[in-house]
């Protein structure tokens, strides 16, 4: 009898915590406009607004956590946070270790940026480590130079270490439009299957909730409005 009461109490305790449903949202905080740390020191950007909206609609309490891009998947698997919402493209390779929600951002173009438009794109090309762009550069025959953050890759082109940088076009755009000294080089390359929320494969319930809300936001057009707000009117929408 005593054992039964204990087990029930333990069960009640566990479900009690499960019902509180705090979801820890993991992001990088260094990839504007997807996600960045604003001047107040808080996580901001398209994914912050989207994530907060998704959580509100799904009835979840969400807490934002930043983590280095490099270790973002291992730390999800060891349970430091429950989702990756960090501009992560859905790829077959990543699907082997984690699950993705359906995409909340359509397959985006990647682009080269260099100091001069006729830069040698088969020379030394910088890319952020562990991205689909780094993968693409390695396969393109160019010499791949990897860096921990997007900012480091751009700095490598500015100081002549690399001939060009290859990254997500939306993330690179501010360096071209505001910097003045760098420009687009070569043609855009469509990569990946869109951007989705990464989750542990065992978290099927959470995946179901996010998928349902993303479907709803795609249908009522509110997701498109949000994309246009952060990426401009020319951005690809659903």
């Amino acid at each position: 009898m005593k054992k039964l009461i204990l087990t029930t109490a333990a069960l009640a305790l566990c479900t009690g915590f499960a019902m509180a449903d705090t979801v820890r949202m993991g992001t990088e905080g260094a990839y504007p406009p997807y996600n960045f740390i604003n001047d107040k020191g808080e996580v901001d950007g398209f994914e912050r607004e989207l994530g907060d909206t998704l959580c509100e609609k799904a009835g979840l309490t969400c807490e934002w956590v930043t983590n280095e891009w490099d270790s973002i998947i291992p730390n999800l698997l060891s349970g430091n946070y429950d989702t990756i919402i960090a501009g992560m493209s859905i790829t077959d390779e990543r699907m082997e270790t984690i699950a993705f929600s359906q995409n909340y951002y359509p397959p985006a173009a990647s682009a080269y940026v260099a100091m001069k438009p006729d830069a040698d794109l088969t020379g030394v090309v910088a890319a952020q480590v562990g991205t689909i762009q780094a993968d693409y550069v390695a396969k393109s025959g160019a010499t791949l130079l990897e860096f921990a953050t997007l900012d480091d890759t751009v700095a490598a082109v500015k100081n002549g270490e690399a001939d060009a940088v290859f990254a997500d076009k939306d993330a690179l755009a501010p360096f071209v439009t505001e910097g003045g000294e760098m420009g687009w080089a070569g043609a855009d390359v469509p990569l990946g299957g869109g951007i989705g929320i990464g989750m542990r494969k065992s978290d099927t319930e959470l995946k179901g909730k996010f998928d349902a809300v993303i479907t709803e936001m795609k249908a009522d057009g509110s997701l498109n409005t949000m994309i246009k707000k952060w990426f401009g009117d020319d951005a690809a929408t659903f």
Binding site: P32, P33, F36, N38, T149, V154, P174, F175, E178, G179
Partner: peptide, 8 residues
């Protein structure tokens, strides 16, 4: 790191 116009 470089701060674009998106920052204050």
């Amino acid at each position: 790191s470089t701060k674009s116009q998106i920052y204050a």
